[in-house]
Design a protein around this nucleic acid. Structure first.
Length: 221
DNA sequence: ACCCAGGGTCATA
DNA sequence: TATGACCATGGG
């Protein structure tokens, strides 16, 4: 069985599920908040925490930055790790305000913007790239655990690549597409959708749209 | 009673 | 550089 290219994987997922309309947020700042809160956390719990912030009229950088840590942690409780995330959220809000919020940051070139994000305590590769792609519309492909799992099962990667190696590999393989930002946006969303939908519990991809290509090498996480 | 979820940091070897 | 511990809630 021939291996599919990443582009073929994208096309099959898109044919199956259609556009996903990501990121689920009303503003770039809300994307940033969601990206921080969803770290190793189910999205439904993130929605509750964001709902708490909104209800407290605290879904804004200055409000979060100046909120008492106790109260901020209370709002974040449903999304887990609330003490850790309260600090991380304040760090990223301080960064956001220091650099002129969206209007200031949107003028930056992508590489220095990415470096600056990664310098914020609590922002790692995936969170930075979520923010770059979905808040600032930059052509950066997001690698998450689902991406590794799916590409691993399709035998498209060795499995021990670093984050940056894997990102470079997938970005290069999609270079010919016309609108890379739109493709990266949709692809990552489709991978998450697909992982939740069918590939989560069943490694052999029974009803999987990618079944024809599935390597079935057993329980490769 | 487990396991997992749209990760990241820190201490240790 | 490479593991392991830790953070913590809610759903299956």
């Amino acid at each position: 069985m021939a291996k599919p290219s990443p582009g073929v994987v994208f096309d099959k997922l898109f044919d199956c599920y259609g556009p996903q309309h990501w990121w689920p947020a009303d503003s770039p700042f809300e994307v940033i908040v969601g990206a921080m809160l969803t770290q190793n956390t189910a999205w439904v719990n993130v929605e509750r925490a964001i709902g708490n912030l909104r209800q407290a009229n605290a879904l804004a950088a200055d409000a979060i930055l100046h909120a008492p840590p106790r109260r901020l942690a209370q709002w974040l409780k449903p999304s887990g790790y609330f003490n850790v995330k309260a600090k991380r959220l304040q760090h990223v809000c301080a960064w956001y305000l220091q650099h002129g919020e969206y209007a200031g940051l949107v003028q930056w070139e992508t590489p220095p913007l990415r470096e600056s994000l990664l310098s914020v305590h609590g922002v790692g590769f995936e969170t930075a790239d979520d923010i770059l792609l979905y808040a600032f519309s930059r052509p950066v492909f997001v690698i998450d655990a689902y991406t590794r799992r799916i590409f691993n099962r399709l035998d498209l990667i060795a499995g021990d690549e670093s984050y940056e190696e894997l990102r470079g590999h997938i970005e290069r393989s999609l270079r010919r597409r016309v609108d890379t930002v739109a493709i990266y946006n949709e692809f990552h969303a489709l991978i998450v959708r697909h992982a939740k939908e069918v590939c989560k519990v069943k490694p052999d991809c029974d009803k999987c749209v990618l079944r024809r290509y599935c390597a079935r090498k057993g329980l490769s996480k």
